[in-house]
Design a protein around this nucleic acid. Structure first.
Lengths: 215, 215
DNA sequence: ATTTCAAAGTGGTCTGACCACTCAATAAAA
DNA sequence: TTTTATTGAGTGGTCAGACCACTTTGAAAT
């Protein structure tokens, strides 16, 4: 039985998938123990572990010493994390991260502004009020709302990841000048003015990167 | 030493990364053997294997029985088919994959068409010739070239991943009708006509999804 | 020079052993 | 009875050593 064409640990991954399906194990719930799996699948425990470890690195399962192995919420896989540290080693890569993040942001703006449903969401006027009254909106808040409203969870997820990767240059509160950009962008969204919205976004981004250079 | 807060196999992954960097191991080249790694990192071989297995499932390394372990070309990681069956279970997710892929494609088109350098690359006329003479271009070829030319490796990598995720509906050669789209798109690129290029791309995409529905 | 084949090296797997940790049942103390 | 300690079973984490299957290599035989 040790002479297989397909590697055993991959078989484990497959079996595990079937098992999860068959027993209807939901995210957060517990998987059989390593020893039990080894028994049931008629393989050594170390082989089971090789399969489990690879799934863990993918963020598909979570193990807790002394407790067991659990199926994770798929929404928080860390594959990109891993890839990133491997792949992103030169400075061009960091720039790519930023460009790619902005790519997702721009598209989300297009989606939201272009939809007469989405651009009338109460959240926009709410944000506008919050801005004029308290002045406590920061870039991330607005962009996040836009991403969420654009209704593409995958894109949202990537955005979150990219955001974590890149530098975090402007976590603080907005300056007066930045508030102007924010306000213009929100107004353009509500008015459904795509060009206006994208233009403001571009100007804002430019302004930010200029500030970055000064530092 | 068995009492670590961070799991040993993750340490292995980290060490391995450093080792690769330190010894300047390039894709395709051989890594130290499992036994040697265990010796050098002062851990058991099974622990080394857990780290290696997870990297293998991510497609970052490749192992050949009797030969050794090799660093793979990042461009062919296969984490996807694993993730796919695990993650993408609702149809909305599949739709998101496609939308997100097109998002990257559209932005790449914008970049390339909008740059007087990039839209004059010889590859475009070359592709155009290839199309009229042999007619052997398929969608993927053209889009890939665009992504590559847009010069954002991260976006390119994501595109590869998303492409593998989604369905593979049109792997075959192009129909006459599709050639029309391809030709129009390439010409728009060369002419630097952004709107024209994006419009053609959108029409092409629509046409493809219609064909998909018929099936 | 060519062929043959045995040895060394490598990944693949199994077994059995400890360790560290968690949790719940049980026993002891209040 | 209620609360607090303790114990033991179960689980993941790691290790060492043993084979097996396969590839490469180089020495020996031709």
């Amino acid at each position: 039985m040790t002479n297989q064409t397909t590697k055993m640990y991959l078989q484990i991954v497959r079996e595990l998938r079937l098992l999860i399906q068959a027993e209807n194990i939901k995210p957060g719930e517990k998987l059989p123990s390593e020893r039990e799996l080894a028994e049931r699948l008629q393989v050594g425990r170390s082989t089971v572990r090789e399969g489990l470890r690879s799934l863990e690195l993918l963020g598909l399962i979570e193990t807790k010493r002394g407790e067991g192995t659990f199926l994770t919420d798929y929404r928080k896989h860390k594959l990109v994390d891993v890839l990133a540290t491997f792949i992103l080693q030169d400075s061009k890569a960091l720039e790519d991260v930023q460009v790619t993040r902005e790519l997702h942001e721009k598209e989300a703006i297009r989606i939201v502004v272009g939809s007469s449903k989405l651009n009338q969401l109460p959240v926009w006027t709410s944000l506008l009020n919050q801005l004029t009254e308290e002045g406590s909106i920061i870039r991330e808040d607005l962009i996040r709302e836009i991403l969420i409203s654009s209704n593409n969870r995958l894109s949202l997820k990537m955005w979150f990841l990219l955001k974590q990767f890149g530098e975090h240059p402007f976590q603080g509160y907005s300056t007066l000048e930045e508030k102007g950009y924010i306000q213009k962008l929100i107004e353009a969204i509500i008015d459904g003015e795509i060009e206006q919205a994208l233009g403001t976004f571009a100007a804002w981004t430019d302004w930010l990167s200029k500030g970055r250079e000064i530092i």
